[in-house]
Design a protein around this nucleic acid. Structure first.
Lengths: 166, 166
DNA sequence: AATTTATTTGGAATGGTTCTAATTCGCACT
DNA sequence: AGTGCGAATTAGAACCATTCCAAATAAATT
């Protein structure tokens, strides 16, 4: 099975400058708490809050940015815990880690297959929906004997000002 | 124009365990020296040797690995110079930097569009030829207003033992 | 040959991330 | 309700790839 090392967002609208929040998301069939305990892990306030922060504002924050946001809710949390929790959430597939070159890792809640677009002017990252058939075609370029467990597709460039999403 | 942030290798053969070295490569129309001076840079021994090392063994070495290899030829070279030279070569498009998550950057001589496959068992990286039409299809998933200057496609997984290339 | 400018160099600094050892927490079992 | 025990959190040190810096060297230009 080929995992998409990529994160998720409902298809955003580009018709005007207004950011469209996902209305229906491919919600996990269980709560985060359930997924955690199913993986033999505990559902802690830190993990829950960090996950909710990721769900809440899907702008692919870095660990530092997550840290800043969590502190408003859990002022005594440590950066190490933020890293630990993010790693845990990635580990049980609630969240995906996203990398652009050697920039700090970004995080987003795990949903469906998509590519990433990184705007070099704004520093923003957007999710690009990936059609299943295209994914199949991409997998098909691998020679026999190559077993891929994950794929990552990322674009770099800039977005037209009128296409601003967030 | 969309650049492929990816490096190159002639299509390797997988029929047996024998690594096939590229026979014909899409050689640059100019020498490295020429490309450098065309970019207003000097052709130095360090730059030339590093470039030749990259051409010589196309196994996507890290800066450290390049450093180790250069030292046999230029024993007094410094690691800082290796980084400088690699950056210079990347800057004038003779070489591509390749990243897998946050692992150390790898380098390969610049040729045609291709994806990367990273074998998690061996730590080896292989180039996967990217058909032009597929590339077009991938670019086509971008919504209007998204102007990509580069694409990167990378696989992670393992290769069957009998498909060993190098 | 002298001057300017680019390049190299070693070592210090940076910055994101991970490690460590100690504390705290949550759950299971009395 | 209290206790014990493994899991989770925490602060700070450590790590490591990479970059920065300031001095030394080399190459091109005058």
């Amino acid at each position: 099975m080929v995992l998409i090392r990529t994160c998720d967002l409902e298809p955003f609208q580009l018709t005007d400058g207004v950011p469209i929040m996902p209305t229906t998301t491919t919600m996990p069939t269980e709560t985060a708490a359930q997924t955690l305990t199913d993986s033999g892990l505990r559902s802690t306030p830190q993990r829950e809050v960090i996950y909710s922060i990721l769900l809440n504002k899907r702008d692919h924050p870095t660990a530092d940015e997550v840290y800043a946001r969590v502190k408003t809710e859990l002022p005594s949390i440590s950066l190490a815990t933020v890293y630990n929790c993010l790693e845990t959430l990635v580990g049980c597939n609630l969240v995906r880690a996203v990398n652009f070159d050697r920039e700090p890792t970004r995080y987003c809640p795990n949903l469906r297959p998509h590519a990433h677009f990184h705007d070099e002017n704004l520093g923003s990252t957007y999710d690009i929906d990936l059609p299943p058939d295209l994914l199949e075609q991409i997998k098909a370029i691998l020679p026999p004997g190559y077993n891929a467990s994950s794929i990552e597709i990322s674009f770099r460039g800039h977005t037209a000002p009128e296409a601003a999403q967030n």
